Amino acid sequence: MTEYKLVVVGAGGVGKSALTIQLIQNHFVDEYDPTIEDSYRKQVVIDGETCLLDILDTAGQEEYSAMRDQYMRTGEGFLCVFAINNTKSFEDIHHYREQIKRVKDSEDVPMVLVGNKCDLPSRTVDTKQAQDLARSYGIPFIETSAKTRQGVDDAFYTLVREIRKHKEKMSKDGKKKKKKSKTKCVIM
């Protein structure tokens, strides 16, 4: 069974824990209790493949930012979460993405942009803004509501699919490099 290491990042209060708990335990946590770091595991079937999701729910508070490099190193894919009623959390996505790329030393890291709290009427981040940002990053965008469960499975499952595509691409690139290195030079 394939294991996928997913990391949920975003500013404090955007609903990272609520999304994760909704996926794992099928219930909505409405009281806000700032996370330092929590880890969850769940076995699911995605596109006919049974897999184990190892999900790291991270601290959004700035005082825990020193811990970010460590979990970013171990993560295979990242859910970059903002709240649709919090423009600052949307603007912060850029910083999370840049930090992930720096730590992973790669421009090509599996990510999904997630606009959470889409059940709320007080939207300050337009869907088109988020779609445009995701398009500019070359990553999928999904709106979710941890409260109603809308888009929750889709967000995590899409990230797994992005990781699969990335692994497939990397193995193809690896095979191309191996083929090239088999060419021999004969000096007579």
Rank of each mutant, 00 (worst) to 15 (best):
I142C: 07
E168G: 07
A134F: 04
I187R: 10
S145T: 04
E168T: 02
K184L: 00
R135D: 14
K178S: 11
I163H: 00
F156L: 10
H166F: 12
M188E: 15
V160R: 02
Y157F: 12
K176V: 02
I142L: 07
R149C: 14
Y157P: 05
D132N: 09
T183G: 12
R164W: 07
A130F: 15
M188P: 15
T127G: 10
T158L: 06
F156C: 03
R135N: 14
H166I: 07
A134E: 02
G174A: 07
F156I: 13
Y137R: 02
R149E: 03
K172P: 14
T158E: 08
I142S: 01
Y137Q: 05
F156S: 00
A134I: 05
K165H: 07
R164G: 10
K175L: 14
K167C: 02
H166S: 10
M170E: 07
S145G: 15
D173F: 07
D153F: 11
L133R: 03
D154I: 05
K175V: 05
I142R: 04
R161E: 11
A146Y: 00
Q131N: 07
H166D: 07
D153I: 14
K128P: 06
R135T: 10
Q129R: 12
A155C: 10
R161C: 07
K128L: 09
T144H: 01
A134T: 02
F156D: 00
V186I: 04
K178R: 06
D173C: 05
R149D: 12
E143S: 08
S136Q: 13
M188W: 10
K175F: 11
A130S: 07
Y137C: 13
T158P: 01
S145K: 10
V152A: 08
E143V: 03
R135C: 08
S145D: 15
K128E: 11
I163C: 02
T127H: 11
S136G: 09
A155Q: 01
K165L: 04
V125A: 02
K165R: 04
K172E: 09
T144E: 03
V152T: 09
S181G: 07
L159Y: 00
D126K: 04
S136M: 08
K169W: 06
Y157N: 14
A130P: 04
Q129G: 11
K178Q: 14
D126G: 07
R135W: 03
S145A: 06
I139K: 01
E168L: 13
Q150N: 12
D126M: 05
V125W: 01
G138F: 01
K167L: 02
Y137F: 12
G151L: 05
H166Q: 08
V125E: 01
L159K: 00
T158S: 10
C185I: 02
Q129L: 08
Y137N: 05
A130Q: 04
R135G: 09
V160M: 07
T144I: 15
R161N: 09
D153G: 09
M188N: 14
Y157R: 14
L159C: 07
F156E: 00
G151D: 09
K128W: 06
K165G: 06
A134V: 03
V152K: 08
D153P: 07
T127L: 11
K180L: 14
S181L: 04
V152S: 08
Q131R: 13
K178I: 08
L133V: 07
T158V: 04
V160C: 04
K175D: 15
D154H: 08
T127W: 09
E168K: 04
D153M: 14
F141W: 01
A130R: 02
D126H: 05
E162Q: 12
K128A: 11
K184S: 15
D126N: 09
A155W: 01
H166T: 09
V125P: 01
V186E: 15
K177V: 11
A155T: 04
E162T: 03
K169M: 10
S145W: 05
M188A: 15
A155D: 00
K178G: 11
R149I: 03
G174S: 13
V160A: 03
I139Q: 01
T183M: 08
F156P: 00
Y157H: 14
D153T: 12
A146F: 00
K178T: 11
A134G: 07
Q150D: 12
K176F: 07
T127D: 12
D126S: 08
K167V: 02
A130Y: 15
I139A: 04
K177G: 13
F141M: 03
L133W: 09
I187E: 15
Y137V: 09
K167T: 04
K172C: 14
K169R: 13
D173S: 10
K177D: 15
T148R: 09
K182V: 05
Q129F: 10
T127P: 07
M170R: 07
Q131V: 08
D154F: 05
Y157E: 13
F141R: 00
I187W: 09
R149A: 09
M188C: 14
E168A: 08
E162P: 00
T183V: 03
K180G: 12
Q131A: 13
R135M: 12
T158H: 12
I142V: 08
K178W: 06
Y137K: 05
K147L: 10
E162C: 03
T127R: 07
A130C: 13
I142P: 00
D153N: 11
A155F: 01
K172M: 07
I139Y: 06
D126Q: 06
K128Q: 14
D132E: 13
I163G: 00
Y137A: 06
V186F: 06
A134W: 04
T183Q: 15
L159N: 00
K167R: 09
L133G: 02
R149M: 15
L159G: 00
E162G: 04
L159V: 06
V152G: 07
Y137W: 11
D132G: 05
A130W: 15
K169I: 11
H166A: 07
T183I: 01
M188L: 06
K178Y: 08
R135H: 11
Y157G: 13
I187A: 15
G138L: 01
S136L: 09
K167H: 08
D132Y: 04
L133P: 01
L133I: 09
K128H: 12
K165A: 08
Q150F: 03
K128S: 13
V186T: 14
Y157C: 14
L133K: 03
R161G: 12
R161V: 01
M188T: 15
A146G: 08
I163Y: 00
T127E: 12
Q129V: 11
R149T: 15
R164T: 14
D173P: 02
A134R: 02
K180R: 10
S181E: 15
D126A: 06
V160K: 06
R135A: 13
L133M: 12
K176S: 11
R149N: 14
K175T: 07
Q131I: 07
T158Q: 06
T148P: 12
D173M: 08
S136D: 14
M170C: 12
K165V: 03
V152M: 13
H166K: 10
K180F: 10
K180C: 15
S145I: 10
G174K: 04
I142G: 02
S136W: 02
